[in-house]
């Protein structure tokens, strides 16, 4: 995993390492669902790349996590749901749920929506008969 840590990154190596642990805390790997964790090297590389554009709130989240007096592995009760961590959680989810393995585990094709698009069933239009039977409901003016 160490090869994920980037040296030209605005986060220090220490901050990157803590961030990676935080990612694991938020979304751990799960063999039963055949999914990696958010600390997986390629997902984490995407996270590291993505935080560059929104660095300040991410740093704030990391600072809060590093200021706790418990090991990060036990920090969930202190961190979960805190508004200051919302930007960080948002980036973790954005990167995690576009990973091929995660999408495929959910039964999705790992691709962008365009150009292939999707099939959506028409639905049963005969259900409208009940609505029509009631007749006009708009008001004359």
């Amino acid at each position: 995993m160490t090869n994920t840590i980037a040296s030209d990154h605005p986060l220090t190596r220490q901050e990157q390492a803590l961030l990676q642990k935080l990612c694991r805390l938020i979304v751990p790997a799960d063999a039963a669902y055949q999914v990696p964790g958010a600390d997986d090297p390629s997902i984490f590389a995407d996270i590291l790349q993505s935080v560059r554009t929104n660095l300040e709130p991410i740093k704030l989240g990391i600072d809060i996590a590093s200021g706790l007096d418990v090991p990060i592995e036990q920090a969930t009760p202190m961190l979960e749901g805190r508004a200051e961590l919302a930007p960080l959680v948002s980036i973790v989810m954005q990167c995690y749920y576009r990973d091929d393995r995660v999408m495929e585990a959910l039964g999705m094709e790992a691709r962008a929506p365009f150009p292939k698009g999707y099939e959506v069933p028409q639905g049963d239009w005969s259900m409208l008969e009940a609505v029509q039977a009631r007749g006009k409901i708009w008001r004359d003016a």
Binding site: Q94, Y97, R98, A112, P113
Partner: peptide
Amino acid sequence: YPSSGRDWET
């Protein structure tokens, strides 16, 4: 437009 990329929700 975003829907042509994997990062469309971002």
